[in-house]
Design a protein around this nucleic acid. Structure first.
Lengths: 136, 136
DNA sequence: CAGTATCCAGAGTGATACTG
DNA sequence: CAGTATCACTCTGGATACTG
């Protein structure tokens, strides 16, 4: 951790900042998790509204049941996604939704998604150029 | 790919958009790559200015030589980073720098880094709460 | 300095089966 | 529906050693 305006020992306020370039800093571990394929796709999907387990499985193409369940549990633990169970119906209905904190993260990763969707052709052109150069 | 304003078959302009939720869409493959730990850290580091191989290895704590070399080559191929060799000195000096396209990506991922550094405490609190609940 | 080559442990995936 | 569990397989990533 760098300098920061820590207010109380052990339970700092929101102003404490970390350094992602230090392997030991907890912030780095957090970045490792959110800079993750399934995390990014799931959070972005949930931004459209609450969803169910199997709905997410269908919507996020290619995710395995294992990774879906694993990623959802991590997101829940990190306070980014809430899990609510409606036991009054059969079979039990489980709904996943973005928390307010999760919402702030979606806002932060949205530019990255947009970038990928808009710059894909520029990257493909660059790859073609690079590959041609290698072949020659 | 979704609808888009493709202008010429095979070589669309910048306006073609992809859909990251489709496993087959090239955009998804691109997102998989940029939503990557070392890519994010390297690009952010290079935003501070051009750097050398071993300098990057020191600055980005924890990166292995293999992943550094591999990631740099991918970034170069994708047109995000340029590699220039100065053979007039011994030993050969190789410098890596952000390209203009790479610069636009850094701008897009910066909010995510900021989020991780600022929200780390909120996430830690959430984890504590979750773990306590599980233990009980 | 700037890498490449090799080996190996572990993470992630898919398929399948099973539970409440 | 909403998962957990297990096996087999691939593939990434880290450690180590070597090269120009």
């Amino acid at each position: 951790m760098q300098e920061g305006t820590e207010t109380s020992p052990g339970y700092p306020q929101v102003t404490l900042r970390g350094d992602v370039f230090s392997a030991q800093c907890p912030t780095r571990e957090l970045l490792d998790r959110i800079a993750d394929k399934w995390t990014v796709l799931l959070l972005t999907m949930l931004e459209r509204g609450p969803s169910r387990f199997n709905a997410l499985k269908r919507e996020v193409d290619g995710v395995s049941q294992k990774m879906l369940s694993q990623t959802l549990r991590q997101l829940e633990r990190d306070g980014l996604v809430s899990r609510s169970v409606d036991a009054s119906v059969m079979p039990v209905a489980v709904t996943y939704a973005l928390t307010p904190l999760g919402g702030t993260l979606v806002t932060a990763i949205q530019p990255m998604i947009d970038w990928a969707e808009r710059r894909i052709t520029a990257v493909r052109d660059a790859r073609r150029t690079y590959d041609d150069r290698q072949a020659a």
